[in-house]
Computed example of a mutant assay.
Amino acid sequence: MLRYSAFADGPEGGNPAGVVLDAAGLGEREMLEIAREVGYSETAFVTEEGARDPAGPARFGVRYFSPAAEVPFCGHATVALAAALAARTGPGAYVFGTAAGEVALDTVADAAGTVSVSFTSVDTRTRPFGGAPLRELLGLLGLAPDDLDPAFPPLESFAGNWHPMLVLKDRGLFHQFRFAPREVARLMRERGWTGTVTVLSVRGPHEYEARNLFPVGRITEDPATGSAAASTGAYLRAIGRAEPGDRVVIRQGAHVGRPSVLVVDVPARGGVTVTGGAIPIDG
């Protein structure tokens, strides 16, 4: 069992994840028990290692568990796992076979040995989000339709998990809103939102602050959410707020005392690339 912090913006930042490099002999119940014991929002398990091809990326089968359930994909645990593999075998390219599809990764180490990981999500999708489900979510967050930024229409966005996307026009309200975790978790299960509820605030051109609500994972807010960052890139592309080739910076985690930064590169089509670092957690 290894522990890493992904996307940290400073020594006390980032989102911690558990990593199990050899879970081939573990069943689903055992992996869930380990994830509960670790207690982080997600733990990544390598369940299969593909045949080595010197000319291609190393391939691994990967499953992700929160303390409550298996999730199809987890961005920060993906970054943590890739950093752990790079520390063991040296930086390079990987492909993770996940329940959401294949995810391609590149790992690079700087002169100090710090590993940076870039993963490209599965193909993205968006779908309309409005009516009664939107009104219910806003009500549970203590928000009203007029609190949304009219330049950013709400959508549900997918880059491995479905995330509802809300952009608030008032930064003070973004920092102050509160919610009832149990009721938000209920709505998330009903709507099939296996990732987070993503609430954004515009900081500047191609820079956003995010709050990612994750009560279904037995935590209130996620410090850094790679799948939501990829979904945010897909969302911004879908509504015309990001053009092909744009780089978007997402800052997250300040509300839970773990500042994080995620860098998102938006291509013309297909999966979105998210980049960040990961460092081992002592103990």
Results as ranks from 00 to 15, higher is better:
237 R>M: 13
236 L>S: 09
258 R>P: 02
249 V>L: 15
232 T>L: 15
200 L>S: 02
193 W>K: 03
206 H>P: 09
243 E>S: 13
191 R>H: 03
279 I>M: 13
261 V>Y: 07
251 R>S: 15
200 L>W: 01
271 G>E: 06
268 A>V: 09
211 R>D: 04
275 T>R: 14
241 R>H: 07
259 P>W: 08
204 G>D: 03
278 A>D: 06
207 E>G: 14
256 V>I: 12
239 I>A: 09
278 A>Y: 15
212 N>D: 07
223 P>E: 12
187 L>S: 05
270 G>I: 11
261 V>H: 03
239 I>F: 04
264 V>I: 04
257 G>Y: 04
255 H>R: 05
267 P>D: 03
223 P>M: 08
240 G>H: 07
270 G>L: 06
226 G>C: 10
220 T>V: 14
196 T>R: 15
199 V>P: 05
187 L>D: 00
261 V>K: 09
221 E>P: 06
253 G>T: 12
223 P>L: 07
233 G>A: 09
206 H>S: 14
215 P>W: 01
217 G>Y: 03
259 P>Y: 11
236 L>W: 02
257 G>E: 04
232 T>Q: 07
192 G>V: 00
196 T>S: 15
255 H>P: 02
274 V>R: 03
269 R>Q: 14
190 E>I: 03
250 I>R: 00
188 M>G: 09
245 G>Q: 01
201 S>W: 02
225 T>P: 05
243 E>T: 11
245 G>A: 09
214 F>K: 08
223 P>I: 14
192 G>Q: 06
188 M>S: 14
207 E>S: 15
190 E>A: 03
269 R>P: 08
236 L>A: 13
277 G>V: 12
192 G>T: 07
254 A>Y: 11
209 E>H: 15
202 V>A: 04
229 A>N: 02
213 L>G: 05
203 R>Q: 12
218 R>S: 12
277 G>D: 06
206 H>N: 09
276 G>M: 05
194 T>H: 12
202 V>D: 00
244 P>L: 00
192 G>E: 06
227 S>C: 13
278 A>H: 08
263 V>C: 14
211 R>F: 15
276 G>I: 05
252 Q>T: 04
248 V>D: 11
250 I>Y: 11
199 V>N: 11
241 R>I: 07
253 G>F: 12
230 A>E: 05
267 P>M: 06
271 G>T: 10
264 V>W: 00
233 G>Q: 01
281 I>N: 07
264 V>C: 02
221 E>C: 02
229 A>E: 05
271 G>V: 09
271 G>C: 09
279 I>N: 13
281 I>S: 01
227 S>Y: 13
272 V>C: 00
211 R>M: 11
261 V>T: 06
209 E>W: 13
256 V>D: 00
233 G>D: 02
235 Y>L: 12
265 D>Q: 15
248 V>Q: 10
227 S>E: 14
207 E>C: 14
265 D>I: 12
270 G>Y: 00
208 Y>S: 06
208 Y>P: 02
212 N>L: 08
204 G>Y: 06
209 E>N: 14
269 R>K: 14
206 H>V: 08
226 G>Y: 04
277 G>S: 14
242 A>P: 00
243 E>C: 07
202 V>L: 00
259 P>R: 10
214 F>C: 10
202 V>N: 02
209 E>M: 13
238 A>Y: 06
221 E>Q: 03
213 L>Q: 01
257 G>L: 00
240 G>T: 08
275 T>W: 10
236 L>F: 13
240 G>K: 03
280 P>T: 10
